[in-house]
């Protein structure tokens, strides 16, 4: 290590980090080393001493040092600023989360709005409940108990009007056709059930889709029935009732009275020589009862008359009177018992 210094001139010493540290007095190791080096009286000692004098001159400027308290004073100010910054950062982050939450909420609202525009409307009646609905084209629907009706929230301008029914409903469809031109798609009105489509032209009619049977009764106007199983079609005229077995898909006219069929709409049960077994089915469909009969001979009895059905207790009371039976009720279970 010392070898290289033997060739040093003044300029070389002035660029040497170890030499600078020695003159500076910042490194005890360097001071010890250069002390020994000088004591060895090397040939270029004069160069070294000259460099030392120059460097001492360069280092002779009075140093500027802070008084002992300054570092602490300034540090406390820095700490104050830094702590405040960290606090504000936390608040800003919290605000950022809040605005992110707001953005997500906005997204949800937008999605909800979109859903509102594009989704379906669903109506479900509970047992014993009927519901009057007005469709987007102002057609009126009365939904019987325990039934479900679905249709698009926004109806297409140039497509048919469509609803999906599971259960029973009475339709009074607005007649959109105002001319004699061929039918436009937007003038069509179609009720879909699981196994039958009913296409309508300004009409009042009843559809009942229960217990494997689909029954349509036309009150006014015209409907075309189309079995989705056999593709068979049938046009009804007012007053006609048709039914279809959902197993066979066969459509046939039946001798039922339309006004009897739609009497539920006026909260009446019109019984035109109605068998007790049919009445029991009706009560089960519309009120969700489970009915047990002790004496099965009453099932074939026929009843003539009108029962107001606004209050379900009414029906049971009237039936018990007509049939001379006792009726026991445990929640939805109803037992027709013989009188002793």
């Amino acid at each position: 290590m010392s070898e290289q210094y033997l060739n040093y001139g003044k300029a070389d010493f002035l660029e040497d980090a170890s030499f600078i540290a020695y003159v500076n007095g910042t490194s005890p190791a360097a001071m010890a080393f250069w002390g020994r080096w000088k004591a060895g009286r090397p040939a270029n000692l004069e160069e070294m001493l000259s460099a030392e004098t120059t460097l001492k001159l360069l280092l002779s400027a009075r140093r500027i040092s802070p008084t002992s308290d300054r570092a602490g004073v300034v540090w406390n100010r820095i700490l104050g600023d830094v702590r405040q910054y960290d606090l504000q950062l936390r608040i800003r982050r919290r605000r950022m989360y809040a605005s992110a939450a707001a953005a997500i909420l906005l997204l949800l609202v937008a999605t909800g709005w979109w859903h509102l525009r594009t989704g379906n409307r669903n109506y479900q009646t509970r047992y014993g409940q009927t519901m009057a609905l007005v469709l987007p084209d102002h057609s009126q629907v009365t939904l019987n108990a325990g039934s479900h009706l679905k249709y698009a929230k926004v109806w297409p301008k140039d497509g048919p009007r469509e609803v999906w029914l599971d259960g029973e409903a009475y339709f009074d469809v607005t007649h959109l056709k105002q001319d004699t031109l061929p039918l436009k798609p937007s003038e069509r009105f179609i009720v879909h059930t699981q196994s039958m489509d009913v296409e309508v032209l300004g009409t009042t009619f009843n559809i009942k889709d229960r217990r494997g049977m689909t029954q349509v009764g036309l009150y006014s106007g015209a409907v075309i029935l189309r079995s989705l199983i056999t593709q068979q079609s049938m046009q009804l005229i007012p007053g006609e009732v048709a039914s279809m077995n959902q197993q066979t898909g066969q459509l046939q006219r039946v001798s039922e009275d339309v006004s009897t069929i739609i009497s539920w709409k006026d909260h009446q049960l019109v019984m035109n020589k109605m068998k007790v077994s049919d009445i029991i089915q009706l009560l089960e469909d519309n009120y969700g009862y489970h009915i047990q009969v002790e004496d099965s001979t009453i099932l074939n009895k026929q009843i003539q008359g009108v029962i107001p059905v606004k209050n379900e207790g009414n029906i049971l009371f009237v039936l018990s009177g007509i049939l001379q039976i006792n009726i026991e009720r445990k929640d939805s279970l109803i037992i027709f018992k013989q009188r002793n």
Partner: peptide, 28 residues
């Protein structure tokens, strides 16, 4: 670093308040 920065700053501008404020701003 404080003593070095203090001296360096003071050699530019002999104003302790100014230099200390600068060092404060630097560290913040």
């Amino acid at each position: 670093a404080f003593p070095t920065l203090y001296e360096y700053g003071m050699r530019f501008i002999r104003d302790e308040a100014f230099v200390e404020e600068s060092i404060q701003q630097l560290f913040v």
